[in-house]
């Protein structure tokens, strides 16, 4: 197969890039995504605040309905295994492997979360420790709880939104821990998540050690200014410690002129609207310049 534009990722950025390219006149677009439904991470973001105060799935549905009016081809449950410098991608799905040649490639693969192993936290490796995004997926897509008595490390937007979700599901959020002097996320999330639900925010603190096996029984919390450490009992630690743009697929390619990164795999955006807007412009410009 040969296409003018191959887009990897059918989240907000990938779909928006496709819309931009279609509007600019591109008539040969293939979007590949590993998930079963388009929308990417929006699917698990069931809170309001996307676009004109939509939920994540509503925002995704809006973009999807626009894509359906174009001739862009969408392939779900399709993993891109590799991309060669000679502009060929290998796609894998239940139907088999396929080589796809392309003129331009847009990578819209989002980001991944920084895992426990990358943090300087010692101790055991018990159950009950996961990333905030994983907890969000667990609660919002699988209707399961990550635990009962929860600490959250990191006060970015994801940490705060997941903290609120835990509270709304009747769980005890003992505190959100933040190394900086104040909350690092958006003010609107601070007000609607932390303040509105009276979730304690412990600034200038971090977690240094995990305890328990097989399940977490507590963590050592350190106050960064005094150096004082104390044991805080909990059965769950959620890590909201940073998002890393997912560029693995193109890590060995350098920066060829046909490769374009959009959305959170380019840089982490605070708001989906800005990621989508930027992607739409890039999608359009690639085609206009070509």
């Amino acid at each position: 197969m040969k296409v003018d534009l191959l887009i990897i990722g059918a989240g907000a950025a990938g779909l928006s890039a496709a819309l931009g390219a279609w509007e600019a006149g591109c008539r040969s677009i293939l979007i590949a995504d590993r998930r079963s439904h388009p929308g990417g991470i929006l699917e698990q973001c069931i809170h309001h605040g996307f676009g004109a105060d939509l939920t994540g799935p509503e925002y995704a549905a809006m973009l999807f309905s626009q894509i359906q009016k174009t001739g862009a081809e969408l392939r779900m449950e399709t993993e891109v295994l590799s991309i060669s410098p000679s502009r060929e991608a290998v796609l894998s799905s239940g139907a088999g492997l396929e080589r796809v040649r392309f003129s331009h490639l847009i990578l819209a693969a989002g980001c991944r979360e920084r895992p426990l192993g990358a943090l300087n936290i010692t101790g055991t490796r018990p159950d009950g420790v996961c990333t905030a995004g994983q907890a969000q997926e667990m609660m919002n897509l699988h209707d399961r709880d990550p635990g009962e008595r929860i600490l959250i490390l990191g006060s970015g937007d994801l940490g705060m939104i997941v903290a609120r979700r835990c509270v709304l599901r009747g769980k005890q959020v003992i505190a959100i821990l933040e190394q900086a002097e104040r909350c690092t996320g958006l003010a609107k999330n601070y007000h609607s998540c932390v303040e509105a639900h009276s979730i304690p925010l412990w600034t200038r603190t971090t977690v240094t050690e995990l305890h328990g096996e097989p399940r977490l029984t507590g963590v050592t919390v350190r106050e960064l200014d005094s150096g004082a450490e104390r044991f805080v009992p909990c059965d769950t630690l959620l890590l909201a410690t940073g998002l890393i743009p997912e560029q693995t697929l193109v890590s060995n390619l350098g920066t060829p002129p046909w490769l374009h990164l959009v959305g959170n795999c380019n840089r982490v955006h605070d708001l989906v609207d800005s990621a989508a807007h930027e992607a739409r412009i890039i999608g359009s410009e690639i085609i206009k310049k070509a």
Binding site: E79, L81, S92, S93, G94, A95, G96, L97, T248
Partner: peptide, 24 residues
């Protein structure tokens, strides 16, 4: 390689469905 992997998927489509992306 491509052909061997293609052959496995033909036997069982679940060989085409990547679950762990990092380790393929």
């Amino acid at each position: 390689d491509f052909a061997a992997r293609q052959g496995l998927i033909a036997e069982d489509p679940e060989y085409g469905n990547v679950v762990c992306f990092c380790e393929d």
